[in-house]
Amino acid sequence: MKIKSYLYSQLSLSFLPIFLGLYFITSIIFLVKIASLTSVITIDAYELFKLYLYSVPKIIFFTVPISFFISLVITLAKLSSEYELIVITSFGLNPLKILKIFFPATFLLSIALIIVSVGLIPKTNYLTESFLEVKKKEANFNIKASEFGQKFGDWLIYIDAKDDKKYEKVKLFKTDNKLDQFIIAQSAVLDNKEGNLSFKLIDGKAFYISHEELNQINYRTMDINDSITSKKKYTFTNSYDYWNYYLSKGQDIDDFTFYILTSIFPLISLFLVVAFGYYNPRYEKNRAIALSLIAIVIYYILTKYLTKNVLLHSLYIAPILWSIGTYILYSKLTKKLY
């Protein structure tokens, strides 16, 4: 138990700096990407922070697998460089037994990453797209005071004054072959209802004019909705329905498989941990970090290729190929010596 606690304590010392560093760098990249949206839409500090929160599951998904794998390798490499692995091995803990110690934490981490990637990322992607769609519609809806010929959906609109999303002395007019509609309001507010823009008209009158009659309605409040339909083809309910909908249509299969294969990367790479982490500091140099980075690049290229070409079959092809390859490498580099 003491050796197990010691190994996990060393792992935490390696993991936290690497994870925080990668998280900070990735956050900067996402923030720059979000800030670039200001060329298209206007967002305040709260909305910027809101979009960043939507990006957190993606940041965690991209940083945690790499951080954890490198941390495992560095932990064993550090123990090797300080001759502590030799002492640990003398107590009967061979590489496979050390892997058994790290296996539960790695397994739980992979499950958590699957939940984040397959469960949370679709939801945050949908929220981000919905938010941006609304902001773009608001940006396109740029009604100026005292100008004719402006439109809100099917309505011609004229306003006397404007203060942000509040409008004064509003006139709306719409006509077709049988009926003309004319609405006046003392004031109005542009409202966002779950992604649909609407005008809330306050204190006014509505006139409905046909060839035979004229009707007048006095109102306290009236909502005029934007008739432009949303471009979203799917309304998010939960992650299971989301993937069931798109996978049944043969869409987003590469994303689904990539999420899962990336999530299980630390789990199916445990043989690489001992293959790269075990070395004799008297005769060998510490190449753990360089070898780990090469392995990460190879794995990501392999998964990208397989997810694009064999789709759902990559869910078993990639882990089998990777596990066999890493075990062969472990057998040649570590198993025969320790």
Rank of each mutant, 00 (worst) to 15 (best):
S71A: 12
L156I: 11
N125K: 12
F68N: 01
S71G: 07
L48M: 15
I224P: 02
K4Y: 08
I25L: 14
L127F: 11
Y158H: 07
Y242L: 00
S110H: 00
Y83L: 13
S55N: 12
I114N: 00
K144W: 05
L179T: 10
K335R: 14
F271R: 01
V40R: 12
V297K: 05
T262N: 11
A206C: 01
F30Q: 14
P65V: 00
E82P: 00
Y279G: 04
T221A: 01
I289C: 01
I224K: 03
Y167Q: 05
F107S: 06
A275Y: 05
R220T: 10
K171C: 05
G92Q: 06
I66E: 03
L13C: 07
L302W: 02
N218F: 12
K171F: 15
K205F: 12
I74A: 08
F61E: 11
L172Q: 03
I28F: 15
N196A: 12
I289L: 11
L37C: 01
P65Q: 00
Y158T: 08
T221E: 13
L11T: 05
S187L: 06
K193Q: 15
F102Q: 06
D223L: 10
F15V: 05
A288P: 01
G153I: 03
K151S: 14
S210Q: 09
L311A: 10
I317A: 02
Y23G: 08
K171Q: 10
Q186L: 09
L51R: 07
T175D: 14
L267M: 00
S130H: 12
I29K: 06
K193S: 15
D180V: 13
Y46Q: 13
A188T: 00
Y46I: 12
D254I: 02
A275G: 02
A139H: 07
S67Y: 03
Y259D: 01
K178Y: 11
F107L: 11
D191W: 08
N142H: 08
I296L: 07
S80C: 07
N125S: 11
D163G: 00
A318Q: 02
I98L: 11
P281L: 06
F148T: 14
E147T: 12
L132Y: 12
H313R: 09
F49M: 14
I253W: 00
F30P: 10
Y23V: 15
F276I: 02
G250N: 04
N196R: 09
S81A: 12
L37V: 07
E47M: 13
S187T: 09
L96Y: 10
R287Q: 03
S14R: 01
D44F: 04
E212I: 07
T303M: 02
T75D: 06
I268A: 05
P65I: 02
K100G: 07
A318V: 05
I34S: 05
